[in-house]
């Protein structure tokens, strides 16, 4: 239906794209966004099928974060279409997109620093509760129960990421790696259909990265579709069902990990030909 999508070299390859009958959860079509003269995202198209883990890779400045911001509504595309569950969502405010079922974490952990860890995750439950200003001020019947339910559900998500013991700590007192996990718990607390993770493993040690990989698989097994920006190539190659490669804002390749690993264009972009070395030199 869309020429840009059907011209994708890997559109019919790989296990998860084999059934073209499945309606994609997220469709990004020819999306473009520039900042002044700089085209940060240049006519990018791809689709994410339900239940997939889709990787999004590319050198620093390739436009990955910008693409995330376009999908979740923090930026408006200059051109192009973004559809979620078949509904166009481009131009929607972030809160509406969140309510439609897309949640995210940020490249720089964006916790609410005046709150404790549990309260941060409780904010994720916001859209799952109803009481307004009046109901809360007057403690109308049901408000206390609702508050308890919010607390319980938030606590559950903290247990999922293994931080339940830090619930009452000020968010600002946590080290970087744990802040990422709190953000993940906060995003999960919204009960999203789709989760966008922006470099979740950066700043984690090897052991923590392994735990994160397990956690991401666990999240996928719960039926949540993931779009994953990650610089650690070995991690993204192991986790992703399919990978999109961005370079200077444009999609230069798309396909299953083993194909991407051997794609000459991709190898060229990542300097020396060894993906792992290329990233570690970039991160320093």
């Amino acid at each position: 239906m869309n020429p840009a999508l059907s011209s994708t070299p890997f559109a019919s390859d790989g296990p998860s794209t084999a059934s073209t009958a499945v309606q994609p959860l997220l469709e990004v079509e020819n999306v473009r966004r520039s900042f002044g003269g700089l085209v940060a995202v240049d006519g990018v198209s791809f689709r994410v099928l339900p239940g997939q883990i889709k990787g999004l890779i590319g050198p620093n400045g390739a436009g990955k974060t910008t693409l995330f911001n376009l999908v979740c509504g923090l930026l408006r595309p200059d051109a192009g279409r973004i559809a979620f569950q078949g509904r166009p969502i481009e131009g929607w405010k972030p809160y509406r997109i969140a309510r439609a079922g897309i949640s995210r974490t940020f490249q720089n952990p964006s916790l609410f620093l005046q709150m404790n860890v549990l309260e941060n995750v409780m904010v994720g439950r916001h859209r799952r509760a109803r009481r307004g200003f009046l109901g809360c001020a007057l403690r109308l019947p049901g408000q206390a129960a609702e508050e308890r339910a919010i607390r319980q559900a938030a606590m559950q998500q903290l247990e999922v990421v293994g931080l339940a013991h830090l619930a009452m700590f000020p968010a600002g007192s946590l080290p970087f790696g744990q802040r990422r996990l709190v953000e993940l718990a906060r995003a999960l607390a919204t009960e999203p259909r789709m989760l966008l993770l922006d470099e979740p493993a950066s700043g984690l040690n090897t052991k923590e990265k392994e735990d994160l990989a397990d956690l991401i698989r666990q999240i996928r097994d719960r039926g949540i579709t993931l779009l994953l920006v990650e610089h650690d190539m070995s991690l993204v190659m192991r986790l992703a069902d399919e990978i999109v490669v961005l370079h200077h804002g444009a999609r230069i390749a798309e396909g299953p990990p083993q194909v991407i690993q051997n794609d000459p264009t991709v190898i060229n972009v990542y300097l020396g030909g060894n993906l792992d070395h290329a990233t570690s030199s970039q991160e320093s």
Partner: peptide, 21 residues
């Protein structure tokens, strides 16, 4: 309440608050 937390979230990080619905 959830309203108080929402207000504090707006204070702390407006974009993140918006992205949380």
């Amino acid at each position: 309440s959830r309203i108080g937390r929402a207000l504090q979230a707006i204070h702390d990080r407006e974009t993140a608050a918006n992205a949380m619905g």
